[in-house]
């Protein structure tokens, strides 16, 4: 599934970041920021209008992403503890 489909409060781990078009600078930046295979993340908050943007916690950082940006990130749901 995609990060853009992850519900508030849910945890998942990153599978990969896909380029939306050739030489996708946004995808490259997401990888640089730590969205790489195996990394755990969680949706911590969503914006007040249209649940956008989303706030994603990954490692010890938090990033605000629009759903378009989050749709580049393939994830798999973390097994619930």
């Amino acid at each position: 599934m995609l990060l853009s489909e992850l519900a508030l409060g849910q945890s998942a781990s990153v599978v990969s970041v896909e380029d939306a078009y050739p030489e996708d600078a946004i995808a490259q930046r997401l990888r640089d920021l730590g969205f790489v295979s195996g990394e755990l993340l969680k949706v911590r908050a969503v914006g007040p209008l249209g649940a956008e943007p989303i706030l994603v916690k990954i490692a010890s950082s938090q990033f605000a992403l629009r759903r378009n940006e989050a749709a580049r990130i393939q994830i798999t749901l973390a097994s619930s503890p």
């Binding site: 930046r29 706030l55 938090q62 990033f63 992403l65 629009r66 378009n68 940006e69």
Partner: peptide
């Protein structure tokens, strides 16, 4: 084309 937010809090 797309505008990115991609902002660290």
């Amino acid at each position: 084309s797309e505008h990115a937010l991609l902002m660290e809090l």
